[in-house]
Design a protein around this nucleic acid. Structure first.
Lengths: 203, 203
DNA sequence: TACGAATCGATACCATGGGTATCGTAAGGA
DNA sequence: TCCTTACGATACCCATGGTATCGATTCGTA
């Protein structure tokens, strides 16, 4: 019982995702029209709307499919070290052209509840789960206090990054990620925080 | 040498600001059209465009004129106490219908550089200056360390509030503002932080 | 090989909404 | 009283997200 009719073109699908990513990272969500994406991809506009319900869903997909793993946690000797490394990665990510994509989606989500849900569930939550895991590992290591409120801590750490991304109050550089990291340890770390432990990162 | 011709109607000006504020706080920037605002204000659309260059400038004005002072610093026995009180005010402000207005403007500013500048210079910077002043007073009190990087600290404190406002990762309640405040003091406070000093708030 | 079904790119179209142009009218100052 | 400008109303322009429809194409199946 195979499919009936002409099958969807995977080439068209990929070309659209790639074109959407390229143009939106460069010029932003609102400044790019669906017609332009179709032209850039060498595809009919209707083909786009056969593959995605709307522009927001397309751009969200381009984010997940093409650059979903660029901010994964780096290997490190300890969980807190890995966390620190991830903060630097995140800062570099936001400062790159990818930052425009994230800005665009957060902005658009303010007036598009469906996109808001998708962004939270498909982008933020998986990444928050990764942070949670690392923090739990750091607690097991003994370098974070055991009474840590993980969700609030995540909002403190990453909220300030998103803030600078969205309102541009200051530079998104390593100096800032360093500052955030040290403040976090002052508030939540234990006296063992500076000692480097050789606890493997739990997967 | 007075003005020539019919003077601008202050009544129309005020009615438009009020209508814009009401509708945008309720339904958001994108969901409200200029035609609707004009109708609600009992005013012709062209009158709006005689008073403001575009929709964004109008809504930005309605924010500044009508609710600009709702998050001023409260009176308190010490600077750090005042800071803490302001965090609670800010949380309540975001949780109220005003939160929609801020969300809308930050979102719109992502694709409107002029609005981005206006929002930063006319809304954020004055408030950041207030926070800076309070922090300097707290340093003079001896309840904050003197090597504090004020701008980074502001982004840490308020960034997480904006983050929750924009992505809804957690509740904007007093519990959260309390958490933020305590983390801040753990990172930047002195041992004198818990002692209540009677230093007047410098104006 | 022929046929049906669904996709393809292209294009015309619709609805919405920001912003402009223009109307006759109203409200000042000189 | 006259001149100038703002007023409310309305028609209009234009960009854009999304839909409808076209003939052509590409598969599975008979």
């Amino acid at each position: 019982m195979g499919e009936i009719g002409r099958p969807r073109s995977q080439a068209a699908h990929d070309a659209v995702l790639k074109a959407a990513l390229k143009m939106v990272t460069k010029r932003g969500f609102r400044a790019v029209s669906v017609n332009e994406i179709a032209a850039e991809a060498g595809v009919g506009k209707m083909t786009i709307y056969r593959h995605w319900p709307n522009k927001a869903a397309l751009v969200m997909d381009s984010l997940l499919v093409l650059i979903g793993s660029e901010t994964d946690f780096p290997e490190a000797r300890s969980a807190v070290e890995s966390l620190r490394g991830q903060l630097e990665l995140q800062v570099a990510f936001f400062r790159s052209s990818r930052g425009n994509l994230i800005r665009s989606l957060v902005a658009e989500a303010q007036s598009d509840p469906e996109l808001a849900v998708a962004f939270r569930e498909r982008w933020l939550n998986p990444r928050r789960a990764g942070v949670r895991q690392i923090m739990q590992a750091a607690m097991a290591e003994g370098s974070l206090r055991s009474d840590l409120d993980i969700d609030a801590a995540i909002d403190l750490l990453y909220g300030s990054l998103y803030y600078r991304l969205l309102v541009g109050s200051g530079a998104l550089d390593e100096r800032f990620s360093d500052h955030i990291y040290r403040q976090f340890l002052k508030g939540h770390g234990t006296s063992a925080q500076s000692r480097t432990r050789r606890v493997p990162i739990t997967d």
